[in-house]
Design a protein around this nucleic acid. Structure first.
Length: 580
DNA sequence: GCCGTTTTCGGCCCGACTGTTTTCAGTCG
């Protein structure tokens, strides 16, 4: 994996510790580090390969941060960060994760009572010592104690993989949508932007009767505990320990509220700057004339973007990684959309031991989803548990040939998901592989080889003439398994050179390529394929998630091979095979 | 710490809520 993520994380840590040092999240240096972290995430090159002047040329990175990045690349440490870590040990930083405690109050408690850890704080509360500190009272003692007890369940820093958060949000939205009081409902926040991990779930409702909506919300089966209830906002904890905030607004404010609660914070700040340039001000209720109550726009997001003089920006792009500038210059990508997808090229059946449905059931389901083509890709024989022998593969090919007429005009390709071994070699032999219509090659083993070895094996697989795509390139599983180490520049370059597509795996646990990797690949001109990797009929619906993930990676429709009509797609497949 | 058709200094988004206050600081999103 590239080190961009690593560097962005360190810059984020630098921002956090600087916030403690400066005593304010609004301190300009804090924001500068945050901006720099975001800039690194938006880079389309490895930071390793960038000179100081190249880094400075990036918007959001100045001389000082560029030097720190170079220092890290060359020495593995950042002196300033080490100093701050020394000054603010982990136990102290941990205190700021308690809701209600920010840099100022933590510093005050340390100064007055010598509190340096959560344990110290708990003891001080037990001794009723906090109430003697200016600004604290019995209520803050009680509230902090409650927060401490909930720490780890729903702290500020805890984020839930999208795989777990999304179904909860969908259950709540569908549960409330039936309420007569609800005029419109959507989940907002990082979930709507399709981030891979989610803090709190934010649900936005438009309604005239706020009370009726609040009542219905608190009655939902997922609710474990009510944390707060108000006229416009209520918060609950679900059984799974996720916090869900519901906000109810009047219908004429829905667009402004949706924009505001979708974020990201950084994107919203940029929008407010655009408003200020026009002598307007933007808040969660509306875009206003400055100093008056004259509304410029508020009902829909489109109206607000329009008033600000830029085209609508899709939620997955709203991270302030260049989308505002691109919108102003009319260079936003022609984003791939769900309705553009014409084929699913990574589908398993019961023939792989881990598939669960028959060939016919999967084909029926793919056809019902309106696909023009599909590739059946059960596992190659080298996969220890679920591999398929030559004889079984040939029998499957016969069955598919026999079914071709039945599913017309949908085209069925006989494919295979191959295993990339340590050296980059694959299952079966060359002649047998060339008998498949479509091959996806994936890493299923040896996740901890070093960067050079991983890169070498993947590139070797791409050079095989039968390999049309690399499946779930980095092998990551969000929240549980890290990405394998790869020289992404080298991998992407080889993909372009060999005409091998990189898969965007749509499974919510994988979303692999990660968006920033997809963005780099697309910019470099690599071909991409968005696939479900479905092992059940239900998982065929994952395609929509792969598309959103691709949108987060700024992927233009023209880069995605399975948006092409079947003939054009088959020509592209044939091109690689005949070129060697 | 970053940035610039109001350039190399002086700016840098907006509002609600809470608990402690007598007018507000700190925290949060």
């Amino acid at each position: 994996m590239s080190r961009n993520r690593e560097v962005a994380r360190l810059l984020g840590e630098l921002a956090l510790l600087t916030e403690l040092d400066e005593g304010s999240p609004q301190a300009f240096r804090v924001r500068a580090y945050d901006n720099a972290a975001r800039a690194v995430n938006g880079l389309t090159l490895d930071v390793d390969s960038m000179s100081e002047s190249r880094l400075i040329a990036t918007k959001g990175i100045g001389k000082s941060t560029a030097q720190k990045i170079r220092e890290y690349v060359e020495t593995g440490t950042i002196t300033k960060l080490e100093e701050l870590r020394e000054k603010y040990p982990p136990e102290y930083v941990h205190l700021t994760r308690i809701p209600g405690l920010g840099p100022k109050r933590v510093a005050l408690l340390h100064e007055e009572l010598g509190i340096g850890s959560v344990e110290d704080l708990r003891r001080a509360i037990d001794e009723q010592a906090l109430r003697d500190v200016a600004g604290f009272g019995p209520k803050s003692e009680a509230k902090l104690l409650q927060s401490i007890e909930r720490l780890g369940l729903s702290g500020k820093e805890r984020r839930t993989p999208i795989e777990h958060a999304l179904p909860i949000a969908e259950e709540i939205v569908s549960g409330l949508a039936t309420s007569r009081a609800v005029e419109a409902i959507e989940y907002a926040g990082s979930l709507r932007r399709f981030r891979e991990t989610i803090g709190d779930i934010d649900i936005l409702v438009s309604a005239g009767d706020h009370n009726a909506v609040m009542g219905a919300f608190l009655q939902l089966a997922v609710v474990e505990e009510v944390l707060g209830r108000g006229d416009t906002k209520s918060s609950v904890l679900t059984h799974a320990g996720m916090q869900v905030d519901l906000r109810v607004v009047d219908p004429d404010q829905y667009g402004a509220a949706l924009l505001y609660f979708t974020g990201s914070k950084a994107h919203n700040i940029r929008l407010r700057q655009l408003a200020l340039e026009r002598d307007w001000t933007l808040n969660e209720y509306a875009l206003w004339e400055a100093g008056s109550d004259e509304v410029v726009a508020s009902r829909t997001e489109v109206e607000i973007y329009d008033a600000l003089g830029i085209p609508f920006i899709e939620p997955p792009l709203r991270e302030d990684t260049g989308e505002i500038e691109a919108a102003q210059e009319h260079t936003l990508p022609d984003l791939v959309r769900f309705t553009d997808i014409k084929g699913d090229l990574h589908v398993h059946t019961e023939l792989s031991g881990d598939g669960h449905e028959t060939l016919e059931d999967m084909l029926d389901a793919v056809a019902a989803r309106g696909m023009d083509y599909v590739a059946i890709t059960d596992h190659g024989e080298d996969l220890r548990i679920n591999g398929v022998s030559r004889g079984q593969m040939l029998a499957q090919r016969e069955r598919i040939a026999g079914l071709a007429k039945r599913y017309e005009p949908m085209r069925i390709l006989h494919g295979c998901e191959l295993n990339i071994d340590r050296a980059g070699d694959l299952d079966y032999d060359r002649e047998f592989l060339m008998g498949f219509d479509w091959c996806v090659a994936s890493v299923h083993s040896l996740f901890d080889l070093d960067r050079a070895a991983q890169t070498q094996r993947v590139v070797a697989a791409m050079r095989h003439p039968a390999v049309n795509a690399i499946g779930h390139l980095t092998g990551r599983q969000i929240g549980s398994r890290p990405a394998i180490e790869l020289d992404l520049d080298a991998v992407i370059e080889a993909a372009v050179e060999t005409g091998t597509a990189l898969e965007i795996n749509s499974h919510l646990r994988r979303l692999d390529l990660a968006p920033e990797v997809a963005r780099r690949a697309a910019v470099a001109g690599a071909d991409l394929v968005i696939s479900t990797d479905a092992h059940t009929v239900g998982e065929l619906d994952q395609m929509q998630w792969g598309v959103l993930n691709a949108q987060r990676g700024w992927v233009d429709k023209s880069r995605v091979v399975n948006t092409r009509p079947v003939d054009e797609f088959l020509e592209w497949v044939a091109a690689k095979r005949t070129s060697r």
